[in-house]
Every structure is written in structure tokens, then in C-alpha cells.
């Protein structure tokens, strides 16, 4: 058995373990709470949710 094979096989065990642990940690410490807050981050007062911005092309017709 080659070193590389061992490392690959080892990582098959270690990587999911680390992933599971970090998921557990994340849910315990509230990383997944208030996701809406994070999702709303791009919006601000000037350009709030529910308002499309940057609508500058093909507006000529509407104006007249």
C-alpha cells in the first residue's frame, strides 16, 4: 500500500468527520440562525428590498 493511497483513504475518513463536526458546531453556535439577515446584506436604505435598480435602458418609450 502506497503512501498516497493511505493519505487518500485517511482523508475519506477525516474530511467527513471534520465536516460533520463543523456542521454541528455551526448549528450549536447559531451560525444558521437569522439567515435572512445575511441574505439582506446587499440591500440598504438607498436600494432597498423590493425595488429594482439600474433600470436605465429602453425607457424612452415610457417617458413619452
Amino acid at each position: 500500500m502506497n503512501v498516497i493511497a493511505l493519505i487518500l483513504l485517511g482523508s475519506v475518513v477525516v474530511v467527513p468527520a471534520v465536516a460533520l463536526w463543523s456542521l454541528h458546531w455551526a448549528s450549536r453556535t447559531g451560525e444558521f440562525r437569522l439567515l435572512n439577515r445575511a441574505a439582506l446584506l446587499p440591500f440598504d436604505d438607498e436600494e432597498p428590498v423590493g425595488q429594482a435598480t439600474d433600470q436605465i435602458l429602453n425607457r424612452g418609450g415610457d417617458r413619452r
Binding site: A39, E46, E47, G50, Q51, A52, T53, Q55
Partner: peptide, 16 residues
Amino acid sequence: MHAAVQRERPEPMEGS
């Protein structure tokens, strides 16, 4: 100043 960059239309939604 910001009026220059405000052009919008309402459409609320959110999602996870």
C-alpha cells in the same frame, strides 16, 4: 446625490 442612482420598481421576496 443618491437620486442619481435610484431607479426602481417594487417586488418583494426573500428566501432560504
